[in-house]
Structure formats: structure tokens, C-alpha cells
């Protein structure tokens, strides 16, 4: 079995329900509690196993920074370019609110990688990947809080619990999905159950007939940063191409006549 998630970027509305449901379930789950620091203070922070980032994606402009660039390569020190051009040497060009741009919400939790470096770098054996279903877990009793696994994770999936000094990460709700006391429809991760737009699908990627496998094939599910070679399990379904939304035309019609037209339309109903 290769359990994981498919996340539909077309329908995700970025409501953070998955993250809060995750926090609620897991703070009293096998790896809980997930402590918070100054939860009601000015700068509240804490351990989360799922975070949602929002991006602007503009298909009209291909990002030059995305392509292998030769620009800075000729210089001995990239820092020289940075120091003279400022952060613009690293940042891309502006997007300018083009109609082809789209807001994409991207929830990210552990990708349950097949080649999980977070497991191999762990010196204590606290991090492990289950052979039977591929879930990567942290044994809270063995972790010494060295942070090395979080350094080895490219997806920011691991967060140190500042209060307990041990590493926390997504468990794929391992304490839910096998619970025989729950009705079968609820044997899913908390984030999947809570998603109001059903943008999150849980299943076995080893089974070609499972919903996650089918969705990945039909909608060309993407792995994030495949070039690092971690073989992440989770897949992201790109937004459907719906074309541009026409902008409203501006008219010079006086407000009074607009009001009359609107009133007539209302009465005609």
C-alpha cells in the first residue's frame, strides 16, 4: 500500500479548514499535544502539520526565474548581483494583475515520500517509514529534537514542538484510518473529512483503480519538486483551464438611467 493524498488546486478555496481540523484531531492524537506559543498573544505560533500557502499563478508570463538562467552564472559571486541589483536579482518580474492570472491555494502537509531523507538522516531511529502503508512517522519517545529531519525535508512538513522539544509531522491520521470503531466513511484523515469543497482525496496510490490513482491520471497530478528525487506520494491536480473571464465594460450612461433600467428589470420579473 502507498497511502497518500490528492489535492485539487482547482477547487481548493483556501479556507484553512483542513489545517484547523488537523490541529484539532492531532493535538489529542498519538503524537499530540501540538503545543502553541502565546496562542492569544501578539505573535501566536505553534506546531501545525498542514499549512496553506496562496500563490498568484500567471500563465501569460513564463517566469524567467523558473528557467535555468545564465544571467548570474557568469559572475563569480551571486552576492555581487544581489548587492548591486537588490532582491530583484532573486525575485521575478511583476505580474501586473493580468487577466490570465489566477489565485491558487496550496495546502501542504507531509508528502509521505518514497525516498524520505528525513528518515535516513535521523540519528535516533525516531523517524521511520511504515513498510505496510508508506506512512512516515516520528516516534515521540525516541526523538532528541536535533532538527536534522526538518532540514532534510524540502516541503517544510516537519515542525519542532517548542514545548516538548520533539518533532511533529502529519501522520495521515494513522489513528483514524484504521479505527474499526469508526464507520467506514469516517476512516479518513481529518483534513479530508473537513474539506468543504472535497478538494482533498485520500487513498492508495498502489491501487490503479483507487480514486487517487484515477484522479492523478485523468487530471495530470503533479508532484512537488520532483527534481530533488524524494519521490513524494501526494499529488496536486492543476487548476482546470477555464479561459479568461471577460472584464465588465465601462459605459458613460448616467446613473439615473442605469437605475431606471435596473428598476424595470426588477419589475419585469
Amino acid at each position: 500500500m502507498k497511502l497518500g493524498l490528492v489535492i485539487d488546486l482547482d477547487t481548493c478555496v483556501g479556507c484553512h479548514a483542513c489545517a484547523t481540523a488537523c490541529k484539532q484531531w492531532n493535538t489529542s492524537g498519538t503524537i499530540g499535544p501540538l503545543s502553541d506559543q502565546l496562542p492569544y498573544g501578539k505573535d501566536p505560533s505553534g506546531s501545525w502539520l498542514n499549512r496553506i500557502r496562496t500563490f498568484e499563478v500567471n500563465k501569460a508570463e513564463v517566469n524567467q526565474a523558473n528557467l535555468p538562467s545564465e544571467g548570474c552564472g557568469s559572475q563569480v559571486f551571486d552576492l555581487h548581483a544581489l548587492a548591486t541589483q537588490g532582491e530583484s536579482a532573486l525575485a521575478g518580474v511583476g505580474v501586473n494583475g493580468s487577466p490570465a492570472s489566477k489565485t491558487v491555494h496550496m495546502p501542504m502537509s507531509c508528502m509521505q515520500c518514497e525516498d524520505a531523507d528525513c528518515v535516513t538522516v535521523c540519528p535516533t531511529g525516531a523517524s521511520y517509514k511504515r513498510e505496510e502503508d508508506g506512512i512516515v512517522l516520528v516516534d515521540q519517545d525516541k526523538c532528541m529534537g536535533c532538527n536534522l529531519c526538518s532540514w532534510a525535508c524540502p516541503y517544510g512538513a516537519r515542525e519542532l514542538d517548542e514545548e516538548q522539544g520533539v518533532m511533529k509531522k502529519c501522520t495521515l491520521c494513522v489513528d483514524r484510518i484504521y479505527d474499526q470503531n469508526l464507520p467506514e466513511s469516517e476512516r479518513k484523515p481529518a483534513c479530508v473529512l473537513s474539506c468543504p469543497t472535497s478538494s482533498r482525496v485520500f487513498g492508495d496510490f498502489d491501487d490503479p483503480t483507487s480514486e487517487v490513482s484515477k484522479l492523478t491520471v485523468e487530471r495530470a497530478g503533479q508532484a512537488l519538486m520532483p527534481e530533488l528525487g524524494y519521490k513524494p506520494t501526494n499529488r496536486y491536480l492543476p487548476p482546470r483551464d477555464k479561459g479568461e473571464v471577460a472584464a465588465m465594460e465601462k459605459t458613460n450612461e448616467p446613473a439615473l438611467s442605469k437605475l431606471k433600467k435596473w428598476a424595470n428589470r426588477m419589475i419585469a420579473r
Binding site: C72, Q222, L224, Y236
Partner: peptide, 23 residues
């Protein structure tokens, strides 16, 4: 000093578009 490796495009899966973080 030579640019190399992952970009915001490969990190988000949008390799054929301009991507920037909003939030």
C-alpha cells in the same frame, strides 16, 4: 553563486507560468 536547483515553479508544480507568493 550559480543559480541552480529548485524554483518556485517546481515547488508549486507550475513550471510554465509566473508564480509568486501572495500569502
Amino acid at each position: 553563486g550559480k543559480p541552480d536547483g529548485a524554483t518556485i515553479g517546481s515547488a508549486t508544480g507550475f513550471s510554465q507560468a509566473h508564480v509568486r507568493l501572495l500569502d
